[in-house]
Design a protein around this nucleic acid. Structure first.
Lengths: 203, 203
DNA sequence: TTTCTTATCGACATTTTTGTCAGTAGCGCT
DNA sequence: AGCGCTACTGACAAAAATGTCGATAAGAAA
């Protein structure tokens, strides 16, 4: 009558692999189930390991949170830095903006940012300014625009990309529209608005 | 040697007052400390009552969460509905937009929205579509623009207002700029972009 | 004053979540 | 094969969070 619980053989990973496995599971939980589910038992179950294994690699559940944040931040920064903006044309800009918006929505970066903001951990993003400056210099160096103006533009682009990434889909669907509508509208308005802003500045 | 713990006389409120007191405390915790601190003991302590008192009025801690969400939503809707847009002028629009942005940042509505989004409770906002439709009809009835276009515009405005409300201040300060810079930039871009969009539509 | 209602509370019980520890088992190395 | 290292695990302990219950007291009404 007893059900045989065929015990799986242990999987022994390298520490790096194991950490990556656990963090990937945690990231999945964060984005699909929300921050509440980032509990020890949940993470361990999602990763297919014992609770003690998670603690073995990260010390505490908070260690998991910290490591997850840092991993997601690093990935996002890498993605943003990879955006190409070789020419100063409308098309090139539109592409860059689209890529930026997608970077913030694809890897759930907006959810990460919201989590950091809500938990007052935004201070973790100490390198944001440096990244923005690097982008300003490396991507916009050929444009004859003052650097602080470029920074203002990037500020508004990032803010809007975050807003769209976090709320765009839900809001669009609430209004009975296709889920990408908010993003499309935001991109249109942003492109047109920035063009006008530049025109005004030149006069 | 024993320290006399002068026991306070009980405060006996009406059920409505007591609920309001508890919810206000919870709201303070949500916006100032983050959602993690919306625990029974934290809420009770902030409200200055015993844990059991909170449960007496709300049943469970989840009941507190639900009631808090509903209260904040109602307050926000009221604020948005109160926005005036009597004329179809640039100035009038700018004022309305500014008011909208402020509504989303003042009462921490963006944090509420982010909380709902992260916890997959956005479905609670069932009346968003109705509110948008009401606003479309009551505020824009005198403008000769199709209703679905107005809805698209409101979609982008709300999305951006949320983004600015949630991330604007932090991002601005990260880049070493005054905290309202993101909002100002967003408003500028939004006004210019919408004007252009309208111009394009007319041609 | 006395009575009645019920908001309030402290103490306790239950459940949930985190963390500890001693032993087990993969895997490389000799 | 035998050995050493350590990733891994289950069982248990500790802590934290939620919820229950009977008693108390504030205020209204008789």
């Amino acid at each position: 009558m007893s059900i045989r619980k065929s015990k799986q053989p242990r999987i022994r990973r390298t520490p790096e692999e194991s950490r990556a496995n656990i963090l990937s599971s945690a990231e999945r939980l964060l984005t699909e189930q929300g921050p509440q589910t980032l509990r020890l038992a949940d993470v361990a179950k999602e990763a297919g390991v014992a609770n003690a294994t998670v603690l073995h690699h990260f010390g505490t559940i908070d260690g998991v949170h910290t490591a997850l944040m840092e991993r997601m931040i690093a990935e996002l920064v890498e993605k943003v830095m990879a955006i190409e903006l070789t020419e100063d044309t409308e098309v090139s800009r539109a592409q860059a903006l689209t890529t930026l918006f997608e970077a913030f929505e694809q890897k759930q970066a907006s959810k990460l940012a919201a989590w950091l903001e809500l938990t007052h951990q935004a201070g973790r993003l100490t390198n944001v300014r440096q990244v923005v400056r690097d982008v300003t210099r490396t991507k916009f160096h050929h444009q004859n625009v003052p650097e602080d103006v470029v920074e203002d533009v990037m500020l508004v682009c990032i803010t809007l990309a975050l807003g769209v990434g976090l709320f765009g889909q839900t809001l669009s669907e609430m209004l009975g529209k296709p889920p990408s509508r908010a993003k499309e509208m935001a991109l249109s308005v942003l492109m047109l608005g920035l063009r006008q802003l530049e025109a005004e500045r030149k006069s």
